[in-house]
Write a protein that binds this DNA or RNA. Structure first.
Length: 774
DNA sequence: CAGTGAGCGAGCTTCCGCTTGACTT
C-alpha cells in the first residue's frame, strides 16, 4: 500500500514518473477526461443557469472504480493533470468522481518530466483553480450547444446524419471558400525573359543564368524586345555583394510536425500522429500533442553537448523560442527526442524516418545561423536600355543548414540559385540563348490535410489533440474528399534567340495536377451555404478567436461563465428557432433542362442519400424518377446529357447459367447482378459499355476468390465453413461469424472444435453499435 | 454493403477536447 497516489493524464507519463518517486508513491493515469456530458442528450440545463449534467464516461467507469480504491488506501492524492484549461477540469472531475476530501487532495503541476521538477511540484501544491475550470466548462457547454442544436437542424433541413460544430464547420468552410476562389480565378499570362551566357573566368568556361526583372504583358511586346536584342553585346555593369543570414525553425509542435511530415515524408496527418504515438509510448520522444515550442533546460544542455561533439563548438547557439500561436496553452514541451544523443532509433521504417526528422529539427533549432553571401550581377544590353540580372548565393558558414532545412508549401519558386563565378566589371559575356516564355498566373493552392491544419492553427481553431480527428470527421461526413487530379495539357509560346536568329514555337506543359488535396463535395458545399445563410456568426473565421477571449476573461475571474453562455445562447437559440420555423428544405435544387423523351423537367439536388438527378416535378401527379450521381460527378458541373445517361440503368446484358445478368449503379458504385448476387465492377470498367463477356469474367473471378478463401469445409454441416477474411481466419455458421481464439491453428480445426468455438459466448460476434436504452 | 428517392412514421444520427487500446469479418 502506498502512502501517496499521483494521477496524471497519460499512462506513459505515469510509468516514467513512478521511476522517479520512491515506493511511497503509486502513479496512475486518468487516460484523459473522466467525466463528460451525456452523449445522447443535450446535457445542459438551459433553463437553470446552463448547469452541465456530467456523468462518468462509460469507458471510464472501471478505471474510476480502481482509482477510487487506490485513493481510499492512500493518505494523500496528488492531482497532476496538465496545467491548462482541460487539465484543470480533469483534476476537478477526478476530485468529484473519486469523492475526495479537501484535506486529502492536492493539485500539482510540472512542466518537465524530471525528478527535481516533480519533487519541486510536490513541495508546492496549490488548490484547484475554480476559474480555470469554469472557463473549460464554458468551452464545453458552448461546443455542446452549438453542435447539438445545429446538427439536428441539418437533419431536418438538409439530410439526416449530418453534423456541424464550431471547429469542423469552419474547416469545411475554408475548403469550400478556397474552391470558390479557384473557380473565380482568371489566369493571365505574361512573358518572362531569361538568358544564359558563357563567360571565361580564370581560363574556365562558366554558364551564367540571368533574368530580366520585368515581364512583358503580350506576345508582341516580348517579340519586339527580343528583336531589339539582335546583334547586341552583353557586359557586366556591376557586381554587388550582400551578406545574409538564415535562422533555423523552432522545434516541432503538433501542427508543424504534421506539416513537415506531410511535405518531407508524404505522411497523412493521421499517420504522423499514429507513428508519433508509438515513438512516445516507447519513450523515444516527448509528448506529441503540444502547441509549445519550448525546450526544457535539460534538453537545451543535451543539445549543446551533442552539437559541440558532433559538429564543433562554433555550431552551438542556444535559443529559447516563445510561442506566438493564438490560444496556445503550452502545457507540454515541444516535440523532441527524449535523448538528443540518439540521432536514430530502432523501429519500423516510418518510426525511424519520423524520429530522424524530429531529431534533426530539434538539433538544428539549437545551432548557429547560416551565413550567406548574395551576389547580384547587373548585365547591360548594348542595343536597348534593359538590364539582365544574375543572382547567386554562396554559403560562407553552413550553421544549422548542416542538419535541417524547413520546406515550404509554396511551389511557385523557380530553380535554386547557384554559385556565380567571380565576374568583374566591364567583362563581356557571350549570349548562349535568350528565351521569352509565356508564363501563367496560378490559382491559390488547394489545401492538403497538413496545410489545412496550419490554417486552422492560425485561426486558433481546434487543438493539437483534435487536428487529426477533425480532418477525419469532415471526410467521414463526406463534406470533403481527399483526391488527386491528373492535370491538363496547356500550350504556351516561346520566343528563342540563339546564334543571332529568332525562332518561335509552341510548347506544351501539364498543369493543374494535384496530389492528395482536399476538395469540397456537393454535400459539403450545400451545408456550408446553409450555415452561411443562417449562422454566419458561428462559422465566421473569427468566432473562435472571439469566444476564446471571453474564456480567458472567465479564467481570470472577470466574467461569470454562465452569464457569458447566456448572452451567447440568447442570440444563437433565436437563430435556431427562426430557421426551424421559416426555412424550407435546403436541397440545392437546380434545373438542368428538359428530358427530350418525356418533356419533363430535369433537376439535380441533394436527396436523402446524397446528390440525385430527378426527372419530373415533385408536385406532379406522376411520381418522379430518380438516379444517384456517380462518385466523380458533381452537381456543380453535371450536364443534362450526363444526367440523362444515369437513367440507362439497370441494363440487361444477357443470360448466364440460365439466369439474367444485368449491370446497375448502386450505393457503392457500379455492379453486375446475377442470380441475386452482386459483383462490383473494377475501376477500369465502364458500366455504360460493359458487355456480357466481361460480366461473366467478373462473376467467375469472385467465385474463384471465394473458393480460395475457404480453409475448411465439412460435409456433415454445409452451413459451417472456416474462411480466410480480411482480419485472418474466422468461422462462418448460418450467416454469422465467429472469431477463432488466439493460438488456434485454423487449418486443423475439426467440426467438433468449430462447434465448441461457436458455443463459447466469448467468440460470438459483437454488435458494432451498442443500442442505447430508451 | 447493394435496385433507396412520394408519404406515413418509428428510430436513428450530432459537438470539442483529453487520453489509449480493442479488435473488427
Amino acid at each position: 500500500m502506498s502512502k501517496n497516489l499521483v494521477i496524471v493524464e497519460s499512462p506513459a507519463k505515469a510509468k516514467t514518473i513512478e521511476g522517479f518517486l520512491g515506493s511511497d508513491f503509486l502513479v496512475k493515469s486518468s487516460y484523459g477526461h473522466v467525466m463528460d456530458l451525456s452523449k445522447t442528450q443535450i446535457g445542459v440545463d438551459v433553463e437553470n443557469g446552463f448547469e452541465p449534467q456530467y456523468e462518468i464516461s462509460p469507458d471510464k467507469k472501471k478505471l474510476i472504480a480502481e482509482l477510487k480504491k487506490a485513493a481510499k488506501e492512500a493518505e494523500m492524492v496528488w492531482l497532476a493533470s496538465d496545467e491548462d484549461r482541460e487539465g484543470e477540469a480533469i483534476s476537478w472531475h477526478l476530485f468529484k468522481a473519486l469523492g475526495l476530501k479537501e484535506n486529502k487532495a492536492r493539485r500539482i503541476v510540472f512542466h518537465e518530466i524530471t525528478k527535481p521538477a516533480i519533487l519541486k511540484a510536490i513541495e508546492n501544491p496549490r488548490d484547484i483553480d475554480v476559474n480555470l475550470v469554469s472557463a473549460q466548462q464554458a468551452r464545453r457547454v458552448l461546443d455542446r450547444l452549438v453542435g447539438y442544436e445545429l446538427s439536428p437542424l441539418l437533419w431536418k433541413k438538409v439530410k439526416p446524419a449530418l453534423s456541424a460544430g464550431r471547429v469542423q464547420s469552419v474547416a469545411v468552410r475554408l475548403i469550400v471558400d478556397r474552391e470558390e476562389e479557384i473557380r473565380q480565378f482568371q489566369s493571365t499570362s505574361s512573358y518572362k525573359v531569361t538568358a544564359s551566357f558563357n563567360a571565361l573566368v580564370n581560363d574556365t568556361a562558366h554558364t551564367i543564368l540571368a533574368e530580366l526583372p520585368e515581364r512583358f504583358s503580350t506576345h508582341d511586346v516580348a517579340l519586339d524586345f527580343v528583336k531589339s536584342c539582335l546583334g547586341a553585346n552583353y557586359t557586366v555593369a556591376g557586381v554587388e555583394k550582400k551578406p545574409g543570414r538564415k535562422s533555423p525553425a523552432p522545434p516541432f509542435t503538433t501542427s508543424t510536425l504534421q506539416q513537415e511530415a506531410s511535405r518531407k515524408l508524404g505522411f497523412s496527418v493521421a499517420n504522423t500522429m499514429r507513428v508519433a504515438q508509438n515513438l512516445y509510448e516507447s519513450g523515444k520522444i516527448t509528448y506529441m500533442r503540444t502547441d509549445s515550442v519550448n525546450l526544457s533546460d535539460t534538453a537545451l544542455n543535451m543539445a549543446k553537448k551533442e552539437i559541440a561533439e558532433r559538429f564543433g563548438k562554433e555550431y552551438v547557439k542556444t535559443r529559447r523560442y516563445t510561442t506566438r500561436t493564438k490560444g496556445a496553452q503550452e502545457a507540454h514541451e515541444a516535440i523532441r527526442p527524449t535523448y538528443l544523443n540518439h540521432p536514430t532509433v530502432s523501429g519500423t521504417a516510418e518510426e525511424q524516418r519520423l524520429y530522424e526528422l524530429i531529431w534533426k529539427r530539434t538539433i538544428a533549432s539549437q545551432m548557429a545561423d547560416a551565413e550567406l553571401e548574395r551576389t547580384i550581377v547587373d548585365i547591360l544590353i548594348s542595343t536597348n536600355d534593359k538590364h539582365f540580372v544574375a543572382e547567386g548565393e554562396i554559403i560562407l558558414f553552413d550553421g544549422f543548414l548542416k542538419v535541417y532545412l524547413e520546406s515550404t508549401d509554396d511551389d511557385n519558386h523557380d530553380a535554386a540559385e547557384g554559385i556565380l563565378p567571380p565576374l568583374t566589371n566591364g567583362q563581356t559575356l557571350n549570349l548562349n540563348e535568350l528565351l521569352a516564355s509565356e508564363r501563367f498566373t496560378r490559382h491559390p493552392a488547394r489545401y492538403t490535410e497538413a496545410s489545412l491544419v496550419k490554417k486552422m492553427e492560425e485561426l486558433g481553431i481546434g487543438r493539437p489533440s483534435t487536428y487529426a480527428p477533425t480532418i477525419s470527421t469532415i471526410q467521414k461526413r463526406e463534406y470533403v474528399v481527399k483526391k488527386d487530379l491528373p492535370g491538363e495539357k496547356r500550350s504556351y509560346q516561346v520566343i528563342r534567340l540563339a546564334n543571332n536568329q529568332i525562332k518561335q514555337k509552341k510548347e506544351t506543359e501539364t498543369v493543374g495536377q494535384e496530389k492528395a488535396k482536399l476538395f469540397p463535395t456537393d454535400i459539403g458545399s450545400l451545408v456550408n451555404k446553409f450555415l452561411e445563410q443562417h449562422f454566419e456568426n458561428i462559422i465566421n473565421y473569427n468566432f473562435t478567436a472571439n469566444v476564446e477571449k471571453e474564456f480567458d476573461d472567465i479564467a481570470e475571474g472577470r466574467t461569470v461563465w454562465n452569464q457569458m453562455i447566456s448572452d451567447f445562447y440568447k442570440t444563437f437559440h433565436r437563430q435556431i428557432t427562426e430557421t426551424t420555423d421559416n426555412a424550407g428544405k435546403f436541397s440545392g435544387e437546380k434545373k438542368l433542362g428538359l428530358d427530350p423523351v418525356s418533356g419533363k423537367n430535369v433537376f439535380v439536388k441533394v436527396g436523402r442519400f446524397g446528390p440525385v438527378v430527378q426527372i419530373g416535378d415533385t408536385e406532379s401527379d406522376e411520381k418522379p424518377r430518380f438516379a444517384g450521381l456517380r462518385k466523380n460527378q458533381s452537381m456543380e458541373t453535371i450536364t443534362l446529357e450526363e444526367a440523362l445517361k444515369l437513367f440507362d440503368f439497370p441494363r440487361i446484358l444477357g443470360e448466364y447459367e440460365e439466369k439474367e445478368v444485368s449491370v446497375a449503379i448502386g450505393r457503392f458504385g457500379p455492379y453486375v447482378k446475377h442470380n441475386n448476387a452482386f459483383y462490383s465492377l473494377q475501376k477500369t470498367d465502364d458500366p455504360a459499355v460493359i458487355g456480357i463477356e466481361r460480366a461473366i469474367e467478373l462473376i467467375e473471378a469472385k467465385r474463384e476468390k471465394a473458393t480460395q478463401s475457404v480453409i475448411r469445409e465439412f460435409k456433415q454441416e454445409p452451413e459451417l465453413k472456416v474462411l480466410n477474411g480480411r482480419y485472418g481466419p474466422y468461422i462462418s455458421f448460418k450467416k454469422k461469424n465467429f472469431k477463432i481464439p488466439k493460438g488456434t491453428d485454423a487449418a486443423t480445426l475439426s467440426l467438433k472444435d468449430c462447434m465448441k468455438i461457436i458455443e463459447d459466448p466469448e467468440n460470438t460476434p459483437k454488435k458494432r453499435f451498442v443500442k442505447r436504452k430508451s
